[in-house]
Design a binder for these strands. Structure first.
Lengths: 200, 200
DNA sequence: GCGTAGCAACTAACCGGATGGTTGGTTATG
DNA sequence: CATAACCAACCATCCGGTTAGTTGCTACGC
């Protein structure tokens, strides 16, 4: 996108921090560092200097690649949403299973929900939701609505509300539950709750 | 706490901005302005100057009364939690009713959940939860556990998890639902969901 | 092969406005 | 008049954003 010329080819030693010049790799390093920083401190609390230091990159590169702090957050959030919908696709034929998979994913990737929370709190009202996030949401709603038409899901509840309830179930039990025993118990509870919801 | 001397008596004209000196009233104005500011922008995003301006008070008074920015947030959060538990006490004999009352309260007082969210995101891990919030939480858990012992509630789920599920239900339908029709529908859904939960 | 021009990747240093926090002094009040 | 309430102005630092300059890579003329 930024460099249409094919200056970035597959390189050999990518294990340690390569001192060779590689815009794509630098961009990735910045994005990773920014993800951690934004998840931990939010947009207002994040420090661009810290991100640059953690990425081992110069601060001006951040502005060259992502415009400004908000642009960097957009990139971080969109990347997080994209990887999330790739790893946990919705399955309208097995919503309880989907819920448990979502719960497990949130348990092992806590930074994702934090990013979403920061976005909701710091962005809402100012600008519209990101295109990627909006697309992900509407894709799920449409999938649910289609399943309702096919008789797979109850029509006594709107697709939007149904999705909200499922996501709300997956939100429980995330705090103070790093041990496997409690997580397993909660996973069953979530599945049971969603199953009741699906049965109408 | 700050002024143990009884300099604050009941005053007469409290409608408009009283130019008379009244430390208690000033404190209240600062607290109100800070509540709005923190709810809107969080701790890192809040601006002490803005709070002072909105409260019609000098900035140094904030530091005299509340120490620093974090102390001010503590005061705001504790006050919000206190007024919340006063207005929506838990009722273990009618959890669905409690849930709908909680939902309504959150709908009409969105700043409360925002404050709680900011606290969770910006404070968690650094310092322990505020005493007031912790007391409120443990009071509810104990009430639920007592009801379980008395056979009023199912024991197939821990009191902590039960509370989490109820609160999760109340978290749904808060976005994009300012019209009364949708709110009424959601209230019934929440009550039904909690009722199913209570029945085991 | 070889020099080199051109460009993209990268850097150190800087800027100015914003911001949390302080202080010395002023005024109402009991 | 003693004290608490209040204020204007100030300060040091932080922080997002910029800029002028350097370095390595590669394409190309010869």
């Amino acid at each position: 996108m930024a460099t249409p010329t094919a200056t970035t080819k597959v390189r050999e030693g990518e294990t340690a921090k390569a001192k060779k010049r590689d815009a794509e790799a630098t961009k990735r390093r910045i994005l990773d560092a920014a993800t951690a920083e934004f998840a931990a401190h939010g947009i207002a609390g994040a420090r661009v200097d810290r991100i640059a230091a953690a990425a081992g990159a110069n601060k001006s590169l951040i502005y060259a690649y992502f415009g400004n702090k908000d642009g960097l957050f957009d990139a971080v959030f969109d990347a997080a949403v994209t990887s999330h919908i790739d790893q946990v696709p919705i399955d309208v034929d097995d919503l309880p299973g989907y819920a448990t998979r979502l719960y497990d994913h949130r348990l092992s990737h806590p930074e994702l929900m934090r990013l979403a929370d920061w976005d909701r709190l710091e962005r809402d009202g100012i600008g519209a939701k990101s295109d990627v996030a909006q697309a992900a949401q509407s894709h799920k709603v449409k999938a649910l609505a289609r399943a309702q038409k096919e008789g797979k899901l109850p029509t006594t509840i709107t697709a939007e509300a149904l999705l909200e309830f499922v996501l709300a179930f997956c939100q429980t039990g995330l705090t103070l539950a790093p041990d496997t025993r409690a997580a397993t118990a909660h996973r069953k509870r979530i599945a049971a709750g969603v199953a009741q919801l699906v049965e109408g």
